[in-house]
Every structure is written in C-alpha cells, then in structure tokens.
Design a protein around this nucleic acid. Structure first.
Lengths: 226, 226, 226, 226
DNA sequence: AATGAATGAGACTTCATTCAT
DNA sequence: CATGAATGAAGTCTCATTCAT
C-alpha cells in the first residue's frame, strides 16, 4: 500500500498525519460515488447532474472527469458499487437460518433493513433499470441467481415439493417482485420511518408456506415476534 | 376567409363529409396521446421529446401546446388515458371465472396478453413511477384496490383462510410485484414474441394454492391447457 | 417565390411591408453565414465561437442550431458559400482579356481586388485548410481546375510552348501559390489599405512572359502604369 | 537525500555514467520540443494538447510547466527550433551549385527532400501562421530574406535581368508560394511516399528560365535526370 | 387552432494551468 | 525538478417553451 520509496518510518508517520497520495485518490473516488448515490437517492438519476454530484462531494466539476469518463459511466458503476455490500449483508443475515423457509424470512427482513439504513439505495437500484440498464440487468441476474440457488437447494432438501426445476426461476422472480413492492409500500412510502410491520412478514411467509387458497389450518408453529 | 358562422346547410354537409371542429380537436388530442404512448414505448420517457411526439402524431410542434400546458402535463395524462382500458380488459376476462382462484389465473393471463398486444404500455406504466409519479401512484392505487376487493371477496367466501383483513393489502402487493417481474422476464425480455409459458402460470398458481414449503401433494385438479 | 396561398395582391403588399416567413428564414440563414464569415475574418476559426457568431448575427444562440447541425457544419459550408461569388467575379474580369496572358493579369488583379473588398475572405479561405479540410480541398480543386483549363487553352492556342500537358497542373499550382503569397504580403499585411503595387504586377507578369534567368531584353510592350 | 554538492569524485563518475543535471534538463526540454513537433505533425496544433505532448515525451503533465510558461510559449518556440536546421540543410545542398539558377533547382529539391524526411515539419511550419503567428512571421521573413539575397546576387551577377531591385521581394514571394503549393500537392498529399516528379521540377525551372508565354525554344541544355 | 422559427437556461465536457507532494 | 490530481472557465449543444404569422 505504501509507495515503494516509503520507509517503514515514513509510513508510520503518514499513518498518523496525512493520507498518502494514492489514499487521497481513492478517497475522492469514493466521495464521488457516495455523493452520487445520495443525490440519486434524493432526486433520482434524471436530476443527478455533475454539478450536484461534485458539489455534494465537495470537489470541483472538473475533478469528476479525472475519475469517470462520463456521467453515464458513473451511473454504470453506481449500482455495482453498492450491490455487493447489500448482497453480503443479506446473505450474512440469512445464513443464521436453519431451514430454508426461515432463511427466506430472514433474508426478506434483511433486505428491508438494508434499504432502511441506506434509503438512497432504493432509487439507485430500481431507477437503474432505465438509466443504467446493463448494470441493472447484471444486478438482477445476480439476485435472481441467488434465489434460484437457494430454492434449488430447498427443493433438493425436500423442503420444496411439487415444482419442476424449470419453475424455480419463475418462483425466484415472484419473490423478487414481492420484495420490491412490499418494501416500496411499507418502507419507502413512509420514508423508512416505520419498521417493517409484522403482519406483512407473516402474510408473506404464510403465502410461502401454505399459499393463498384452500390452505391447511395454520399449524402450531413458532412465529417470529414483532 | 370562410365565414365562421355555419348555416344549417354547411352543418349538414359537414356531418357527412368533415368532422366538427370539436371532433377534430378531440381527434388531434387523441393522436398526441397515442403518439406519446408509442414514443414512450419505443424510447422511454427520457427521450420522448415534444419533437418526436408531434412528428409521430403528424402535427406541428407548436400544436402541442394547444392541447397540453407542458410536456409534464402530457406525461401526467398518459398513463390514466390507457390505464382504464387495461383494467377493463382484464376485468372482463377475469369475470369469466367461477372461483376466485381461477379468476386470478385468468386475470394474470389477461395482464400478460394485454401487454403483449400493447407492448408500449409496459414502459408507459412502469417508467411512470419516475416520470409521472402522481399518475403512477393513482394507477397503482387503483390496481391494488382491485386486488384488495377481489381478495377480500375471496376471503369472505371462505376461499382464503388464515389471513387478517390487515394482511390483504400485502397480498395484493405481492401479486402485483409477481405480475410485474414475470411479465418483464417472460414477455418484455423476449420482445413479446413468445406466449406466456404454461410452466410459469402453473408455478404461479401452485404458489397461490399451496405455497412453497411443505405443500400438500398436488391434488387431482383440472389444469388450463397451454 | 410567394407561398402557394398568396394571391398576387398579398404578395404585392408583402413586398412593401413585411418579409414572408420563408424570406425571413433565408435572411436569418444568410445573416448567420455572413456573421460567421466576418467573425472568422476577424479572429479566425479557432475563436469563432457560436456565441460570437450568433451575437454578430443578432440572434439567440439556440437559433444557430435551427440552421446548422453543428459548428463544424457551418464551417464546412462557409467557404463554398463565398467561393462561387469570388470565382464569378474573377472570371468576369478575366473574360475582358484578349490574349491568355492578359487574362492572367486581369485575373490576378481581380483576385486581389476581391479580397480587398471582402478582406474577411482571406482567413475564411486559407484557414479552411485546417478547419474545414474537405471544403478547402474542393475549393482548391475548383480553382486549380480553372487554371488548368485556361493554361491548357493557352497552350492549344500556341501562346504557351515548351510544356507537357502533364506539367500544366504544376504550373497552375505555382500560380496559385504566387497569388496566395503576394496577396498575403501586399494586401493582408497592410490591412488591404493599399492598392496592389504595379511593380508587383509587372514582376509577376514578366516572370510569366520571360522567366527569371537569361531573359530576352524586355520587348517594347505597353506596360500597365504603376 | 543525496547532498547537492558534488565532490570531484561524483563528478567524475557522473561524467562517465550519468548526464549532468543541466544535461538532463536540456534533454527533457528537447524531448518536449521533439514530442510537440511530432504531435503537431500528426494531428495539428489544435489537437496538440499538453497531455498528448507530455505523454509522447514520456514525462508527466506537470513537468511541462517547468520548461515552458504556457502551451502558447511552446508553440512559439516550436518553429524556430526546427527552422534553422531546415535552412542549413537547404543552404548546404544549394551551395553545390554553380549558377544561381542551378542553385534554385537544388534548393527546391532540397526543400522537398527535407520535408520528405521530416514530414511533421510541414504542419509545424504552415499551421504556425495561425497558431504561432509571430514565429511564422519571423520564419517567413528569414526565408524570404534568403531568397532576396540570392536573387539580388543573381541580379548583380547579371543572371537576372529586367527586374527592379524593388521587384526582387515579389519574386521571392512567388518562389515561396510555388514551393509551398508544389510540395503540398506532390509531397504531402501522397504522404511523402513518392519522390518529387521530374516533370514538376522541369516545369518549375522552365518557368524560371523562360516564363510561360512566348518563350524561346528550349535551348540545348543539360537537364537533371529523374 | 396550426405552425415552426426563435429563444435561453442549463447540461455535459475539455483542457490549460496550478500546486501540493 | 517531477508528478499528476484538482480546478473552473468556457465551449458546444439540447430542448421545452413562446409567439408572431
């Protein structure tokens, strides 16, 4: 990390006093991506002008073009830059689960919580379909793959029965759409000020467990408290 | 140079030959909305310039402002203008059902078919969230209300059990999200050239009937053919 | 010229009072080309900004793009727009000549005079080599062709002897270079305030008649006075 | 960290191994001028950005401003830096001549050959009229003076007759213009891949010897072979 | 009501130059 | 002296909107 001309001593000193040149660069780049995420979160991609972004990042307009070739390039990098940390966050929370159906519940909650803590991410992600289609496509593909992997596993474990392998993808899409719309209404529409209502989680989970129609009577099962 | 007062005679002639003034106005207005829908369907709201819209409608640029106060106003009227015919189409097809769960299947198929025949509607509807938020909100509210009404009815009929009244809304949102994502992948992504795969419909319906996890063995039930 | 809906009367009235819409368009276009020529003449292509040009033309900046797709397109049209009138002017003056050698003298004088009256043309023409290479190439080709035509004619008349047909082009280029450099020094460098010195014309013509070296003694020929 | 005072020893070592500080400086300066000439030759002054020049010179952008106050200053020094070597080259080749008219032929050939070997020089020289007018002016003045000197000498030797002293300058300009245009067409336009056609040289020389019109029959004179 | 030329605010982008390291 | 990130002035261009015809 230290430049090749730095002795251990100078490195130490730097570590206390000032950032390295390379560190400053990385910091500026991060500041720009961060600012962009915030601006997009606030006003959407359409109004996320270079002026607005650089102003929020606290750098000159020209600086922008030392880091990105164009506004579009930034947009293309924005979602990927945040995408991974979201997936990590969710995966980590989901891994605490025993059964796959519990994993889905944890994962759904984690999705909501992540957006709750990074509200700007909602627009960054969903408006990307329009303003950074390729990035959106990749992101969607990754998320869908995650679902498919988990559902396939659940199916091979015997937790899921009665579905073709060919139907797994459709199920994944349904879960993604459900998440999207539920978080939109119960999170974003309230400015992420409320927690995710337990009624919603239980409806979601009951649908996954028993379907809508002609369901078996609710078994005596421990439910996650609200 | 023709006098502006119409004699009974000219009126008669017009009735046969030419449209009334008011009719022409309405026709132009419709042409503009129609053109806008097509343009938005083709290139999205961002690139739906006044120039593109008026050109497609076959009128001069300036004419636009005789019908709409601004580009935004047009956008705000675009979704509502089409929304109703979609809902009618779907309702009509759904009304053929006996049980509510069959209605949902018919309605889902109808949604797909409608988009298939009016592919421009997909972008008009979903991009409206960004470019005509109020219209989108209203549209969504209407659709959601439709779902809620039907689900509530199904619940009062006893077809749906085990859900609170308070959870009905969440269920409606899930169905909306599912539709959105399934049509996106199986319709739009293929350019609406393929029909909706039956595997997808049956997966969707099986989820609604039995859920994902620990489902009862598939009962002997007549399935809609592909 | 009048629009197809104009009666003879309205045309007459317009001729006195106001320009037609189409006339105004043509006028604006001309104003822009004219302004561009002046600006380029004053400060060169590099500094001929859209702002400067539209300001000089007395129109808004945006108006520019109703007439030209880009700054470059204007530059590409600038030289051709003036080129023809120069060639016409020169041809006309040259046609008064009897012998071809007299034509060359008249033509040379005409070239100087034209630039004298349209001083902006000098930069428009010669800087085009850099800023509108294609236009420059075409212009040069036309001028060269003119020279070649005349020289060829003189040769077939027997006024020019001792040169291959293949050498005619080179001779044309020499004359073009000579014009360029002489007008540069004796016209442009003095701000076109002085007339073309007769000494220069006679040197030019003597070179053409007798060459530089080992020339025959100057024959008793009427010379244009200085 | 090395001390700035050189001991006799280090000086000795340096003399063998490394360039002096001053030498390095001079080398970098030369590298920049050289790079600039190449870049200008390739893409012209307009696109000769500091970035392009320093990149080609293999130094950092900032380094540029240790050697030149501004881009313009570099441009102003570019032509002078090369000018002299061209004049030397031409003079040397011309000095082999006996008569002045032969000198002119050699000199013309030398001009072409020099450009042929340093093709970048063409744009450096002729675009300087626009981008480094002062340098261009000086260069032109020098070249013109050279012509005037030679022509004057030829005149005083009696090789040139029939021209005023006051006309010598005009003759010099004509020769310069001729060179320019002939090299442009027969050298640059072909990418300097062909040699100068002998037809062109002989046409040029015949013009200088006998003029265009009414020339004496070509005397029995040795011609330079192609 | 129909038209399309005129307009200017504002967006993106380039690049010579500065300056701290 | 070398470096390259930071800067902002300035330029080109787009397009919704206005308005005279």
């Amino acid at each position: 990390m230290a430049t090749s001309t730095s002795t251990a001593l100078t490195t130490l000193i730097r570590r206390r006093n000032k950032p390295t040149r390379a560190q400053k660069v990385e910091r500026t780049r991060a500041a720009l991506l961060d600012a962009a995420a915030q601006v997009v979160g606030d006003v959407g991609y359409v109004e996320a002008s270079i002026t607005a972004i650089t102003a929020r990042a606290g750098v000159g307009q020209g600086t922008f073009y030392n880091y990105f070739d164009s506004r579009q390039e930034l947009f293309d990098q924005l979602l990927p830059a945040i995408s991974q940390q979201m997936l990590d966050f969710i995966k980590q929370r989901g891994d605490a689960a025993g059964e796959e159906q519990q994993r889905e519940e944890l994962s759904f909650r984690a999705f909501f919580d992540f957006l709750s803590e990074h509200p700007e991410f909602f627009r960054v992600m969903y408006e990307a379909e329009i303003f950074a289609p390729q990035a959106y496509e990749q992101h969607t593909e990754m998320v869908l793959n995650g679902f498919v992997r988990i559902l396939t596993k659940a199916r091979s474990k015997g937790e899921i029965k009665g579905y073709d392998a060919a139907q797994i993808e459709a199920l994944g899409l349904i879960l993604m759409g459900a998440r999207h719309y539920l978080c939109q209404r119960y999170g974003r529409q309230t400015g992420w000020k409320e927690r995710l209502p337990e009624k919603v989680v239980s409806a979601y989970m009951r649908l996954l467990r028993h379907g809508l129609y002609g369901a078996a009577p609710e078994p005596a099962r421990k439910r996650n408290a609200g």
